[in-house]
């Protein structure tokens, strides 16, 4: 199927922006600029951009410890994301969150999370809120292949099914839970089949194909808006870097990584398709690469120059104070 040129270019640009952000932030982390480190999502761009391009900006997401790609695709400006990685006052969480706690609740980003599997439950709760208030929106909960071995994930899936909540569960399945290969720790070795066991539409899809991710998410969203309840999508993808920046893992071969990079890279695949269809010229593509590089450079500059949070505010916002004066 031919890709709409405008949509295609924007989608490709988003993926390039994320890739450049991650590779830049990775280097900055190694230089000590990111307190607490970060989890690089390079290789997984199509899952984030495919899902988010199928959503309305007001839809809700809740995600995982590896969430830069989801956050940028959701629409948070990269300078705000970078500033949060630097734990600066101008970051989305005022420097209180860093890489794992990116959020913009007002705009439907209910947060990354330091706890594996927690995002699906929060998204399920948001979907319940949407339903209780009679709104026409959906919530998306991201989880990794590690998170699908937590009980809380399946408790949330079950609850979404019984209440017919407008929820889409996306397994951003990069196949390694830290250093543990998914097949070694996943009974039955079929994550979509687990989902199906809860009685909801459940699919395994190619997470390196941004259009396939978009299509499945759109269909899931339509079902949710029609009151048909949640959908479970297991998107197969791959991360090119370690679990955390600086990891020296021996758990997979360089050949495996090279194979995914050279044959299944979501950006290469999609850009080649757009060029072959005439939706994009090589010159456009090169200009796009330069433009995102400039945007990320500016984001780094913004983060570098931003002020640190005022340490005298460490008690601010713990609670409202309305229940009684804090002493």
């Amino acid at each position: 199927m031919t890709t709409d040129s405008k949509w295609g270019k924007e989608t490709l640009r988003q993926m390039l922006l994320i890739r450049n952000f991650e590779e830049t932030a990775d280097k900055l982390t190694l230089r000590g600029k990111v307190p607490g480190g970060m989890h690089n999502s390079s290789g997984q761009e199509a899952v984030a951009v495919g899902v988010m391009s199928a959503l309305d900006p007001k839809d809700v997401i809740a995600t995982t410890h590896r969430s830069h790609h989801h956050t940028i695709a959701k629409g948070m400006p990269v300078n705000i994301v970078m500033a949060e990685l630097f734990t600066k006052a101008t970051g989305c969480s005022g420097g209180r969150g860093a890489s794992m706690h990116l959020a913009d609740v007002e705009n439907g980003h209910f947060g990354g999370n330091g706890i594996v599997g927690a995002g699906v439950g929060i998204a399920m709760g948001a979907a319940l809120g949407i339903k209780q208030m009679g709104h026409k929106k959906v919530a998306v909960g991201f989880v990794g292949d590690g998170g699908v071995n937590t009980g809380r994930t399946w408790e949330a899936v079950n609850m979404a099914v019984i209440y017919k909540l407008p929820l889409i569960i996306i397994v951003d399945n990069n196949q390694y839970a830290v250093e543990t290969f998914v097949e070694r720790v996943t009974g039955g070795n079929d994550i979509a089949k687990r989902g199906a066991g809860f009685g909801l539409p459940s699919f395994t899809i190619d997470g390196q194909d941004v259009e396939e991710v978009h299509k499945h998410t759109s269909e899931a969203r339509n079902r949710a808006l029609a009151g048909e309840g949640p959908t479970f999508i297991n998107a197969l993808t791959y991360r090119y870097y370690g679990h955390n920046v600086g990891e020296k893992g021996q758990y997979r071969t360089q050949e495996e990584i090279a194979d995914w990079r050279s044959h299944r890279d979501p950006i290469d695949r999609f850009s080649a398709k757009l060029i072959s269809e005439g939706a994009l010229t090589q010159a456009d593509y090169e200009a796009m690469i330069k433009s995102v590089a400039k945007e990320i450079e500016e984001a780094v500059d913004f983060a570098e120059k931003s002020p640190l949070p005022d340490v005298s505010t460490i008690l601010d916002g713990v609670d409202s104070g309305l229940l009684g004066a804090r002493k």
Partner: peptide, 26 residues
């Protein structure tokens, strides 16, 4: 029963349901 909801015995999901919906505005 939309405002008094019987739940499965799933404490993590029950609190997550409360947490997410409270963040949403309930």
């Amino acid at each position: 029963v939309d405002r008094v909801k019987d739940s499965p015995i799933s404490e993590a999901a029950m609190v997550a349901a409360g947490l997410g919906s409270a963040m949403y505005g309930c």
